Every structure is written in C-alpha cells, then in structure tokens.
Measured scan of single mutants.
Amino acid sequence: TEVDLHLGDITIKLKDVSEEIVKRAKELFKNGWSAEFVKKWIEEAVK
C-alpha cells in the first residue's frame, strides 16, 4: 500500500509502511520534529 504523509508543506510518499509507523511519524512531526527528521526516522523504522 502507498500512503502520502503530509508534513507541513512537505509530502512524503510511503510504500509498505504500517499504520503504526504513519501514526508515530505524525506524532513526531506534531511534537516539533522537522519533516526531514521524520523522513529519516521512517526510513530507519522500515529497515
């Protein structure tokens, strides 16, 4: 499945990412993480 994760003005296309990771990524962004950091976190999380 593909998900578009909207973080501010940046959209990250996610492939084969669990709902849990998407939820967590949104929380991290809301908590002040930059979109770049969230993207890196996701990449690490799906390895």
Rank of each mutant, 00 (worst) to 15 (best):
L7D: 02
A25S: 02
T1I: 12
L28S: 01
S18P: 14
H6D: 11
V3D: 07
S34V: 05
K15T: 15
N31S: 12
K13R: 10
A45H: 08
E20H: 10
K23E: 15
K23S: 11
W33K: 14
K47H: 12
F37P: 01
E36Q: 11
W33E: 08
K23G: 07
I12P: 01
I21S: 01
E2S: 12
D4Q: 13
E36T: 08
K13G: 08
F29M: 05
A45D: 02
G8I: 03
K26A: 10
V38W: 01
A45Y: 09
D9R: 05
E2P: 08
L28N: 02
I42S: 00
K26S: 10
E36I: 07
L7Y: 03
E19C: 07
F37V: 12
T1W: 15
R24L: 11
I10F: 13
G8N: 04
A35S: 09
K39M: 15
K15F: 14
K15P: 06
L5V: 07
S34A: 09
E19K: 08
L14P: 01
E36L: 08
I12E: 04
W41L: 02
V22L: 12
K40G: 09
I21L: 11
E19Y: 10
T1Y: 12
L14R: 01
E2I: 13
V46M: 13
I42F: 03
K26F: 10
T11M: 06
E43C: 07
E27W: 11
S34R: 04
A45V: 12
I42P: 00
E44M: 05
F37M: 15
W33P: 00
D9T: 10
E27V: 06
T11A: 07
S34N: 11
W41Q: 00
K39Q: 12
W33D: 04
D4L: 15
L14I: 11
K26E: 13
D4W: 11
A35R: 03
I12C: 05
S34D: 10
A25R: 00
F37I: 13
K47S: 14
A45T: 13
I42W: 01
R24P: 00
E27F: 07
W41H: 01
T1D: 14
N31Q: 13
A25L: 04
K39D: 03
D16E: 09
F37G: 13
K26T: 10
L28W: 04
V46D: 04
F37C: 07
K13P: 12
I10K: 05
T1P: 11
W33S: 10
I42H: 00
L14G: 02
K23D: 14
F37W: 14
R24A: 12
G8C: 03
I12Q: 03
A45W: 09
K15S: 11
L7H: 02
T11E: 05
V3P: 05
L14E: 02
R24N: 10
F29L: 07
D9E: 10
F29D: 01
E43P: 01
K47Q: 14
A35C: 05
F29H: 05
I12R: 00
D4V: 15
G32K: 02
L28D: 00
K15H: 15
F29Q: 01
R24E: 11
L5Y: 02
E36Y: 05
L7R: 01
K39C: 09
E2H: 11
D4S: 12
W41T: 00
V38T: 03
K26D: 05
N31C: 13
V46C: 12
A45N: 10
L7T: 01
S18I: 06
A25P: 00
K39H: 08
A25C: 03
E20N: 09
I12V: 08
F37Y: 15
F37T: 13
I12Y: 04
I21A: 02
K47M: 15
K40A: 15
S34G: 09
S18R: 06
T1R: 12
L28F: 10
L5F: 06
L14F: 06
V3I: 15
K39Y: 07
E43L: 09
A35D: 03
E27R: 05
V3F: 14
D16K: 04
G32M: 02
K47L: 14
L7G: 02
E36C: 07
L7F: 08
A25W: 02
R24S: 10
E20P: 05
D9N: 11
K13H: 15
I12H: 03
E19Q: 09
L7I: 08
V17L: 06
V17Y: 05
G32R: 01
E44K: 05
R24C: 14
N31V: 07
W41E: 00
G8S: 03
E20W: 11
K15E: 09
K23V: 12
L28Y: 08
D9C: 12
K39L: 13
V22S: 04
I21D: 02
R24F: 12
H6K: 13
T11L: 12
I21W: 04
L5P: 02
I21H: 03
D4K: 08
T1L: 12
K30V: 13
G32S: 02
I10D: 06
I21V: 08
L7E: 02
E19R: 08
D4Y: 15
R24H: 14
H6L: 10
V38S: 00
D16G: 15
D9W: 04
L14M: 04
K23C: 11
S18L: 06
E19P: 13
V17T: 04
A35M: 06
A45F: 08
T1A: 12
N31D: 14
V38N: 00
E20G: 07
E43Q: 09
F37D: 14
S34E: 06
E43F: 08
L28C: 03
K23L: 14
I21K: 01
T1M: 14
T1N: 15
K40N: 13
K47D: 08
W33V: 09
E43W: 07
E27T: 06
L5I: 10
K26Q: 11
K13S: 13
V17Q: 02
V38D: 00
E19I: 08
I10V: 14
E43T: 08
K15L: 12
L28G: 03
E43G: 05
E19S: 07
E19M: 11
V22P: 01
K39P: 00
S18V: 05
R24I: 11
G8A: 04
S18G: 09
D9I: 07
L14T: 03
A25E: 00
L28Q: 02
N31A: 12
V3T: 11
E27C: 09
W41N: 00
N31R: 09
I12G: 02
V22Y: 06
I10E: 13
V22A: 05
E44P: 00
I21Y: 04
D4H: 15
D16A: 05
I12A: 02
D16W: 09
T11Y: 07
S34I: 06
W33G: 06
A25Y: 01
